[in-house]
């Protein structure tokens, strides 16, 4: 890697799919992805995904964090934070730990916040004993 010329920002992005490019198949990487073009198939990354406003993705997506400004037809599995900008269009189910939806974004699908730590607590009614409300026999005699 170039020691002198590479900037910190450049180090962060591994894959850029430009507007003129159409990718088909299973796109699996361990780096950050910026999508400006079209993808059909599957997108998997252990890091961040940024989908530009002119892009179209016909794929199921797995990523750590995602910023969506384009159109996605498929399910989104985001481990941490998902952000939908006003131009975003999502046709599919979402599973994420943290979500931010801007006014104007389109979301057609189920949304599941899949953080296991913050599960809703179920009251345990079945294990409770019934309260005795009648006065005891000894107390009445007195």
């Amino acid at each position: 890697m170039f020691k002198e010329t590479a900037t910190a920002a450049a180090h962060e992005t591994d894959t850029i799919i430009g507007p003129s490019v159409k990718v088909e198949g299973d796109f699996v990487t361990e780096g950050n992805i910026i999508v400006e073009g079209t993808i059909c198939g599957t997108v998997k990354t252990s890091r961040n995904l940024k989908v530009g406003p002119s892009s179209k993705i016909f794929a199921n997506i797995w990523a750590d964090n995602a910023l969506i400004a384009g159109e996605i037809q498929g399910n989104l599995n985001i481990a941490n934070k998902l952000e939908l900008t006003p131009t975003a269009k999502v046709f599919g189910d979402i599973k994420t730990a943290n979500i931010s939806i801007s006014s104007g974004a389109t979301l057609n699908g189920k949304c599941q916040m899949a953080d296991n730590k913050n599960k809703a607590i179920k009251p345990e009614f079945s294990k409770q004993k019934k309260m005795e409300l009648r006065p005891q026999a000894n107390e009445v005699e007195e």
Binding site: M1, F2, T5, A10, E12, S20
Partner: peptide, 22 residues
């Protein structure tokens, strides 16, 4: 120098770059 992306040198990966001028 593209600036937008880290084009690696001397790694176990090839870098594929597609450029066009519109």
């Amino acid at each position: 120098d593209e600036g937008k992306v880290a084009i690696s040198s001397n790694t176990d990966y090839l870098d594929l770059i597609i450029k066009n001028k519109v």
